[in-house]
Simulated scan of single mutants.
Amino acid sequence: MEKLRIGVIGAGLRGGLALYWHKPEGESEIVALADLDEERQQKFQERLGSPIFLTKDYKELLVREDIDAIAVLSPDYLHEEHVIAALEAGKHVYSEKPLAITVEGCDRIIEVWKKSGKHLMVGFNMRYMSMYQTMKGIIDSGAIGELKTVWVRHFVGFGGYFYYHDWHANSDNTTSLLLQKGSHDLDVIHWITGKYTKKVSAIGGLDYFGGDMPNDLTCPECSLKDTCPEYVPHTFTECAFRKEVDVEDNNMLIMELEGGVKASYLQCHFTPDYERNYTFIGTKGRIENDDVNGKVYLKTRKTNTWNEFSDVTYDMKPEEGSHGGADPKIAQDFVELVLRGKEPLTSPFAGRMSVAVGCAATESIRTGGGVVEVSQTSSLIEN
């Protein structure tokens, strides 16, 4: 295979990722799209600048011989169905995170993938961000000694706009935002530490969004739109204070990883700013990121060596492309995986484990905050 021909399922939130695959004169090309909305179909095709096959029925993509791979960019609750169907049809698959919204769904996907002989890649683009690759490199170098503790604070500015004005706000579609939004952070914790989570305890609540407004109310039709702080005029317009909203808007999670590493993850969706703050603490020092200003700080402690004499600040260089330059990198890695068998930075098993932690944490929150064991799996699935 000299060129990877890709069919896309879903032209919504992550549809822009497909632009990085569309290189008609290069090694990859978008040749088809399945989306239920005809207006989205047309806008997607216009952004590509090339005529492609358009349909509302994703199954029409699976029978086309001019499609080698499927990019599953559909809503979370459809990932399991779409990924399994594509693999069973003999297509390679790129799946946006989370891999599924239940552990059982992830395990079904992995079982089908193992039997298919095709490639499956999960869209953990934070692994491709220079900031987190830098942090992993510092830790792997031994600069902070043996890693013991991880603290993560996630301030989700615009949380209402992105998660409470559409399908994300219903647990039937997401399980919870610890699973949906938090799967990135849970995966980064696993990736950088090199350890998976064994057990969790969590508390959380729906303390700002949700309420008693009608489920069919939209912002443009609302009599309170001139004074409502969550009013949005376009794209995602379902009322953020409607009755059906049932996913927590703030969460506090503590985790015990393999090897005794301790971690915490805090997430809030009604903060005024957007920031991910990671701190990794080891026996010789700690590192912390400032993603707003593009810096990573290395601070050392007394070691009776020259290392204790100075701290170090790393300045991230600007990169082109969405998500801090990560999207073009992860798109290219999928091409490399299929065309040349080059293993990417992510894995289906890693995708499964971030979902497992999110599900266990959600169970803990909704049953009183007790300790919940994270669902593990056999080495046959991992390997």
Rank of each mutant, 00 (worst) to 15 (best):
I138Q: 10
F162I: 08
Q133N: 05
T279F: 04
S74C: 12
L4P: 15
A361E: 01
G105H: 13
A326G: 05
S322P: 12
W306G: 04
T305Q: 08
N215S: 10
D246I: 15
K198I: 11
H22K: 03
A169S: 13
K295F: 01
C222E: 07
E96S: 03
E39W: 13
Y314H: 15
A326M: 03
Y132W: 06
G16Q: 04
M121Q: 10
E46T: 06
A100H: 01
G10S: 04
P51V: 07
K56L: 14
I30L: 12
E29N: 10
L19F: 14
S378N: 10
L120E: 02
E146Y: 07
T303D: 08
L186R: 00
E39M: 09
D315I: 14
E308Y: 09
G368T: 15
D76W: 00
F280P: 06
A18D: 10
G282E: 03
K295L: 13
R40T: 06
I109G: 01
P233K: 11
S201A: 06
Q45D: 02
T197Y: 02
K262V: 10
H22I: 06
E244G: 07
P233E: 06
A169D: 01
G205N: 15
E2L: 05
Y164G: 02
K284S: 10
G90V: 04
L61H: 14
G7S: 13
K114P: 04
L337T: 11
Y231Q: 05
E275M: 10
T218W: 11
L339W: 09
Q180E: 08
E29Y: 13
L257I: 13
R301V: 14
K97D: 00
V374S: 04
G325N: 04
V103L: 00
D216W: 14
T218Y: 15
A71K: 00
K199M: 03
E111D: 14
C228K: 03
F241P: 03
R242I: 01
I110Q: 00
N383H: 15
Y58R: 11
